[in-house]
Amino acid sequence: MLNFLYNEDSKLETEIYKVKNHLFFMSLKIAEENINFETYSEVLSAEAKEKIKKNEPCIFITPNRGWRANKNWLYPKETADFVKYVNQETQQNATYLSDPEEILSLNNIDSYLPIITLGIDFILKVGIESVVDIVIEYLKNKYPRIFSNSKNQIHFKIQIEKRDKKSMLKLEYDGPANDIKNTFTGEKISEIIDRL
């Protein structure tokens, strides 16, 4: 009955935005950081401590510090839902690296996912692809329209422990949801694994 409401206008606008976005921004930044699990020793929860000790393949949800001179460890507001989704809907296990006390809500509609920290054992047993798939599935379930709207950006970081366990490789994604899959290609993932 409402067939006459269908119009191509909005699709065209989205396409133009996508092309602009693709030309001027690189969605994924990879950098090495001098941090490891010990960096978080002052805030590590008992559960996380035990899992790190046992080398359990687990997704560690990590707080961030230093947001606008704020010295406290903060989690973004999307964190609780993401952790529940991972634990309820997937076969993986997500654990807070520290007990969440303060939650940061930022001022736009973009989705800020928590920092995901992965031990080297997780990468060897499970792989990066499954974490990326979990992120995509989470977004698909929670915000079904986010994949057709390029204006809503997704921000997430994955920290991967290097083989020497002294530093971490940080993957920082800032871009539209429908670009995540294209960014984390097989080639890119093998490049990341080579750098570990």
Binding site: N70, N72, L74, Y75, K77, T79, A80, Y96, P100, E101, E102, I103, L104, S105, L106, N107, N108
Partner: peptide
């Protein structure tokens, strides 16, 4: 749009802290 840090929150279904 406001930026804020939440210190205490409650789930509307169970009344517990959502975290």
């Amino acid at each position: 749009s406001v930026e804020y840090v939440t210190k205490k929150a409650t789930c509307s279904i169970c009344g517990n802290n959502p975290f």
